[in-house]
Design a protein around this nucleic acid. Structure first.
Length: 568
DNA sequence: GCCGTTTTCGGCCCGACTGTTTTCAGTCG
């Protein structure tokens, strides 16, 4: 049972309790416990002493007992009973935007509706408008919401949304009455997937800003329009929310809208302890505003330095901030090379020269060309002979570069038994050997862990690429004991890759943090198959920042000489 | 359900928009 699965049980409990109209604070307690569990760097199932969990925020006796029960029996009796309740099936309706627990209960109590299909039929037949609190518009919105729920179930990869958000932000900045504008929300926190785009602006005239916003060229649909808050949809049914405040409140609004929710709740309860109130307009002592113009100002009231958005998950950042022990996070400009770059020798679409030139242009000192090995036949993997030819070619190219080096590498396949796809005699001639799994993802945890560790123990291997093999929204991470893999990497002085490719981001933020705690070094690489893919580094670095990584935790921040020496 | 250097009971973050009413509940972030 993974942490994710345990957390999901608590989220499910919260949803059923919500429909049952239970105590909202009890509901929040379950959600909070779920979040805490999801963000743990250690698998609970591996823990020797489960009672330590009780020390964590939001995990008290009742939840601790349920965790123990889940680990012991695979389920929680309390949840199993809840699932039997009359109202449990109604959670399906909560997936519809605009449909909350109260209305779900209402349609069930009055019309016995418990599925989305039944709800849709009732809305089409105008059966909902006579219910108390609902009307014809509600029917319309429910139908729209159902269409949206079906179409837009998934969250979008960060790298997909980010450029769209920048375009919208540029448009918003052009609105005459806008003074300051910024992205907020999970996008600003650089979560690996985001559901929508949040923008906050400052202005003295919110009305015309709102009016101009809903008319920007990207808008294909207007979802809400108010004096200070408006929402539109852009291509791909992505929702963009705009919030307008006065300049003196910009910092408070930006902080509030950036979240996360858990982080905000913590800040606000700290405020309460000090007889202060925090909202999107500022920090208030009674009626007097004591901060709000900038985020720095808001944090400083609580004795905190500015906390980077990537850290704002109520995951220890507030405690670290109070002790002035926040990490100095890695930045994209710290990166000096990319160690996982493909070329047209295998399944890349550009020449080695094109990739190298672009890398030099964006300020790198080195790249490692790591094309596929023979086993990945579909990718035109390189055998020993072609690899030797490539090496000669790279030597020739290197004579034409100044202050930049193309390293000779390979992305060698780790076969299902842990053996590598090329002989040691071939690998030892290379500068950078990246090993990775591309087949038999369905192995048991024991097999997969053994397989990867065997590769780590090969003297010629430098880096394990995309260690879990997950593809966001497509393929789950393979079953692997990351603790053991990291311990092996540490013992053998090997690095693990944070693959920055948008669908991968593998290792993820939580793994990064665990690696840092253990002292395992990482590299951030893009797995680029064309020049512009090298720019995915930005998203890899963002994930590393979410994992609290600093420059010294990441090897490809080293200058070339030091980097080469490290692996020698 | 969690939590506590005021507390083991009684709190628990805060506000905008919508659609329905006619002062507000529900939903969302």
């Amino acid at each position: 049972m993974t942490n994710q699965q345990i957390a999901q049980i608590f989220y499910n409990i919260a949803e059923i309790l919500e429909i049952q109209d239970d105590n909202p604070f009890r509901i929040r307690a379950y959600i909070r416990a779920g979040q805490t569990i999801e963000n743990l760097t250690q698998q609970i199932s591996d823990m020797q002493n489960l009672d330590e969990l009780g020390e964590l925020p939001g995990i008290g006796n009742a939840i601790l007992e349920k965790i123990k029960e889940i680990l012991r029996t695979g389920k929680a009796e309390f949840y199993e009973k809840l699932k039997q309740s009359e109202y449990a099936p109604l959670v399906e309706l909560l997936a519809i935007p605009g449909m909350g627990p109260k209305h779900a209960r209402l349609v069930y109590d009055r019309l016995r509706i418990k599925t989305i299909a039944q709800l849709e039929k009732a809305a089409r037949n105008a059966k909902l408008r006579n219910l108390p609190g609902l009307g014809p518009r509600a029917e319309e919105n429910i139908l729209k919401g159902i269409a949206q729920a079906i179409k837009h179930k998934q969250r979008f990869p960060l790298a997909h949304i980010y450029p769209l958000a920048q375009e919208v932000l540029e448009q918003v900045k052009r609105i005459k009455q806008v003074k300051q504008a910024s992205i907020a929300g999970s996008l600003r926190r650089m979560k690996e997937t985001v559901a929508d785009i949040d923008i906050v602006v400052s202005t003295d005239k919110p009305k015309p800003v709102s009016a101009a916003f809903i008319k920007i060229p990207q808008a294909i649909n207007i979802l809400a329009e108010g004096d200070t808050k408006s929402s539109i949809q852009i291509q791909g049914n992505i929702q963009v929310d705009l919030r307008a405040v006065k300049d003196e409140s910009f910092g408070a609004a930006l902080h509030y809208l950036t979240g996360s929710k858990a982080h905000n709740i913590r800040i606000r309860s700290i405020a309460q302890d000090r007889n202060l109130k925090v909202n999107e307009y500022g920090v208030f002592k009674g009626k007097k505003k004591v901060a709000g113009k900038t985020e720095e100002e808001v944090y400083s009231i609580f004795g905190l330095p500015l906390i980077a958005p990537e850290l704002r998950e109520d995951n220890g950042e507030i405690e670290a901030g109070l002790k002035n022990k926040l990490p100095k996070l890695i930045q994209t400009k710290d990166i000096r090379g990319d160690l996982h770059v493909h070329s047209d020798w295998s399944d890349g679409t550009r020449s080695i020269e094109q990739m190298a030139k672009y890398a030099q242009k964006i300020g790198y000192e080195y790249i490692a060309i790591c094309d596929h090995s023979p086993y990945v036949g579909i990718a035109n993997g390189l055998n020993e002979k072609r690899l030797a030819q490539q090496a000669k070619y790279i030597d020739k190219l290197n004579r034409n570069f100044k202050g930049f080096v193309i390293l000779k590498g390979i992305e060698v396949d780790i076969r299902s038994d842990g053996k590598l796809d090329l002989p040691d005699a071939v690998l030892e001639k290379l500068d950078t050997v990246v090993a990775s799994v591309h087949t038999k993802f369905g192995q048991s945890e024991k097999e997969m862990t053994k397989r990867i560790i065997k590769a780590i123990e090969n003297l010629n291997v430098d880096i394990i690429a995309h260690p879990t093999g997950r593809l966001i929204g497509k393929r789950d991470p393979c079953l692997v004991d990351m603790d053991k893999v990291m311990d092996a990497a540490l013992a053998n002085h090997k690095a693990l890759e944070l693959n920055a490719y948008p669908q991968r981001l593998d290792l993820n933020d939580i793994h990064c943090r665990k690696a840092k705690e253990k002292g395992v070094k990482l590299v951030i690489s893009t797995d680029a198959h064309k020049e512009l893919d090298l720019d995915f580094m930005f998203f890899g670095v963002a994930t590393a920042r979410r994992g609290w990584l600093q420059q010294e935790d990441v090897l490809n921040t080293l200058h070339l000489k030091k980097f080469v020496r490290y692996f020698r």
